[in-house]
């Protein structure tokens, strides 16, 4: 199971507490992970990536294993520790003010 940490506003919208756990069928990539999140929680459609272009919303960042994965291609495989459930895939709002 892949562990996902969502920003607080998206947890509220999805009505979940804490980490989200999801299984991915096939290769686990950033794109397939986001599709799985949106499939489980359709109310999150458009809040993480644009529904038409599928581009990450510009004020969100993707972190995992102490790395910034925000600019990875959507078909890039997720890091092994994320796939193994050892590390969470973190989606968070960019800091845009003090």
């Amino acid at each position: 199971m892949i562990r996902i940490l969502l920003p607080a506003h998206l947890r509220t919208l999805a009505r979940i507490d804490g980490e989200l756990l999801l299984a991915i069928e096939g290769e686990a990539t950033q794109g397939s992970l986001l599709s799985a999140i949106e499939g489980r929680y359709p109310q999150l459609l458009g809040t993480i990536r644009d529904q038409i272009t599928l581009q990450r919303r510009p004020f969100l960042r993707f972190f995992a294993c102490e790395r910034d994965l925000s600019h990875e291609a959507s078909d890039t495989p997720l890091p092994g520790p994320v796939v193994a459930g050892e590390e969470p895939f973190i989606i968070l709002g960019a800091i845009a003010g003090g």
Binding site: P7, L10, L13, G46, T47, D50, L60, G93
Partner: peptide, 19 residues
């Protein structure tokens, strides 16, 4: 600005909402 646009709908005068 972070999460884009949502539309919410209430069918009970604003007590509960569904996107």
């Amino acid at each position: 600005g972070w999460f884009g646009q949502l539309i919410q709908r209430s069918d009970d005068g604003g007590k509960t909402w569904e996107p």
